[in-house]
Nucleic acid binder design. Sequence first.
RNA 1: GGCCCGUUCGUCUAAUGGUUAGGACUCAUGGUUUUCAUCCAUGCAAUAGGAGUUCGAUCCUCCUACGGGCUACCA
Length: 468
Amino acid sequence: MNKPIVRFAPSPTGYLHIGGARTALFNWLYAKKNGGKFLLRIEDTDLERSKSEYIDQITDALSWLGFDWNDNVILQSKNKSRHEEVVNHMIQAGTAYRCFLSKEELDALRKESEKKKELFRVPKTYRDYSLEQHQALIDEGKSFTVRLKIPDGITEFTDLVYGTIKVNNKELDDFIIARSDGSPTYNFVVAIDDSDMNISHVIRGDDHLANTPKQILVYKALGLTLPTFAHLPMILGSDKKRLSKRHAATNVQEYKEKGFTATAMINYLSLLGWNPDSDQEIFNINELVGAFNFSQVQKKPATFDEKKLLWVSGQQMAQIEVSTVIKEIEILDSSWGVNQDSKYKNDVIALVKDRSKTLNDIIEVSDVFFKEDISHNEEMSKKILDDSSIQIITDLHEALNIEDNWRKDTLESIFDNLMTQHELGLGKLIKPVRFALTGLGYGPGIFDMIILLGKDRCLNRLSKAVKL
RNA sequence: GGCCCGUUCGUCUAAUGGUUAGGACUCAUGGUUUUCAUCCAUGCAAUAGGAGUUCGAUCCUCCUACGGGCUACCA
């Protein structure tokens, strides 16, 4: 088998959203798994809506995810003359024809059919006109579109996900391949470009499933070799509607900013609409490449569930190396940990990492170790720092102040004394102490934390908390 | 309206012509951690509905319902 060539073909009318990322992922996985090529084509022919800044956003997001594409980015708009050339060729060859029906005429006919509750079909008035007749009408100054001459018969193809799809060509109008301004339409150019790029596998969202027969008809009219098609089910929001801007976060970039690693995103996305045929849920990229298979891709749409994403992210966080975490965080927040000793940074991350679900969780907690001054939420202060808590903190301050052996065992005995002194369990002691020390209601083990913070910081914070 | 696609716990999914319909997330409860998180255990929870084929259908067929997509001189 030849090495597959696949492509991801977003239109630059917005940022890269979750659905697009999943499509890109499956393309990329398939290419990687089979030693093929993953190409990137930007479908920027809709001049009204396409913006170059979106191209940058999309390529940035793809790079962040690690979907490195082969060759240069292909801009569809650059293929304009090629598209026009093919249209002309098809007119000459008789596989397409000029249609002189105006948009207004068609709209009127469409409305009429609707009124009569009849099925509307584009009239094939000009289908069999000769090229001379075309010229005569052009000379009259009539404008025209170009339509594909769809033959009788059945168009059938085997989708890697959906199986055999069959459509009677009668259901299809002679659709427009070039508008009256000469610009080619989507279902036409996509076929030409995919063919020109030698795409072997067209992997895309299933919103394109119904258009596939039209594209196949273009391939056939030109005698081109058909690619294999694989359509992916949609990703839905929690309301079961197609994921769109109405939903909370659909932009890949937003998830990056929320502190999810690319690995976690990819891991979660891979599980939407695909299963590894095993109970494994946590994958690194290589495992995913090895396991991916179209036979395990679902046909039904999947709902995006941020709760599960968080869980996947937490699982990934437990496996990720401290040095990697530091790199990732520094990419995310360049001000993080500046002027901090690198051994200290390592220790902080090692302490905090396993109880964090996202990089942002880590950033939040690690702040406590980097900043001299921490803030205490007023409401929580009132709730936690009652008289007995203040007494505990005062006593602890006193004991720590005269303790020079800053070790776990000495700290433990200090807390033992406090426990007997106040007749409280360790849990009751920890809560106010942690709050005094960090301003947080959660965090790493208390002894580890005290050791890492160091004596000065601990004493300062304890005495500050007493005054709150 | 027409065409195409789909429908298993709330969510992601597994299974097979014969299972107590399995796992994961969420949620609840308990345990571990003398805190929180993690972790572990237990529990709640599903084959859209109706016909047919069959000794037996979640699985095969048909119908209905529901959902999605396409049906544009958008991509």
